[in-house]
Write a protein that binds this DNA or RNA. Sequence first.
RNA 1: GGUGACGUGGCAGAGCGGUUAUGCGUGAGCCUGCAAAGCUUAUCUAAAGGGGUUCGACUCCCUUCGUCACCUCCA
Length: 466
Amino acid sequence: MSQIKIHDTLTNSKKKLEFSDKVRIYLCGVTVYDQSHIGHARTIIVFDTLRRFLEANDIQVELIQNFTDVDDKIINRAKEQGESANGISSKYIQTYFEDSDRLNIRRATNYPKATEHIDDMINLIQKLVDNESAYASKNGVYFRVSEFSEYGKLSKKKTEDLESGARIEVDESKESPLDFALWKFSDEQPNWESPWGKGRPGWHIECSAMSIKYLGKNFEIHGGGRDLIFPHHENEIAQSESFTSEQFAKIWMHAGMITINGEKMSKSIGNVKSINHVLESWGANVARLFCISGHYSKPIDYTEELLKENLIKLRQIETCYYELRLAEKTQETEDISSLLKESREKFDAALNDDFNTSLGLSVFFNMIKTINSLAADEKITKENAEMALPVLEYMLEVLGIKIQTVSDEEIESVFKLINKREELREQKQFEEADKVRDEIGSMGISLIDHKNKTIWMKKESIKAER
RNA sequence: GGUGACGUGGCAGAGCGGUUAUGCGUGAGCCUGCAAAGCUUAUCUAAAGGGGUUCGACUCCCUUCGUCACCUCCA
């Protein structure tokens, strides 16, 4: 059983994650009308890392992440480009998977699409209409906010305040300006038949329908970016709880925004950095380290400096891994078993306390620093390494960091070249020795000269470094 | 205007009512034929301002100032 506690937005408190056989997570995905940016990636990485942490501790996770593939934005984009809405959404779903795979995100259990769950939504809406939580009007079917007395409990908003807000559109056909659309009438494609008339679903209803369908009436964690708290998640609660008369998600977990110059990254401001862009320049490992460098609930400001800092950290991880992988018998040694045990415990403790990845990373890098400094003194024995590697690999797996690995045959051939270089150096044939070094370098390998031996590592090639 | 979050050393960023967070950067050094990487060590002795509670506050309370997010679509 996991000891993890997570901050719940609804109760504004840390809650123990309780579950029976598995942890069920619903994560609000993206609207597929354009490339995803690093802000989207952050949310996905946070939840992927959480999932990895649970799974690495033998907890089964069912993760559902939806695609919003019917929406005004998609339709508009389709019109602009003279394409079908379906063409646009499937194109960007594909892009999404490409980004996601490159970021080393574990595939979710399922990626339901809104357009494939229209019947489920209609059933849900029907029941809401039947129990007076919703009504049909001229433009569509609306949720009757006044029927849900707890409306505003997630976002801590009062309906009076919302009503007096200036930004709510006035729609004469709605009973109240707060009422939101479950179904929008439309003769335009894409549209579907419904008991109330042809049209398409509203945004919020899809997540209610799909989360209930795949995860049941109440599941462990509902996640998404902070910006979804209102109105999206607030409305989901209203719909779902009016439908089931039960508590919806047990924990609402929200990830902070990525900002640029302190300002939220968003398409409307036009300050977005696409996942593709970040991957091209920095690679997945740096991107992942960057995205979990602060607490998940807080914003992270996107700067090149910060990415560079994380690149340096990646190099330290690589060094550590290769020091362990290539460790040989040495005379001197030091007992590192307590370091390893403590690191593992503190790492887990940090993540168990509201998934504090920032604190967890500091434990992780402390361990790496210690191992690297012992290695520099040639005090890492084969036995040490065999003890340390599983701990390191556990953490790497949780963090989703993929180090370039090598086969035993590769190790042998590299060492052959290194020995060749050593011989040349001893004979002071430095020019020849440097040629061998270049040859090794062209294999993506860099050398680390210690006092008595030369160690090496396969480094991830990072464009931004050059 | 309403609601929520936040303000920590050059930068990033945690915890904690009394103990060095950590990392990056920077300086010096070690290693080296050179380089890179790595390593060692030093450095900054931080808490937006003002009150209060306390033997003691960065940590709790109040207040002023500032920043951000949401209140429209948004991860």
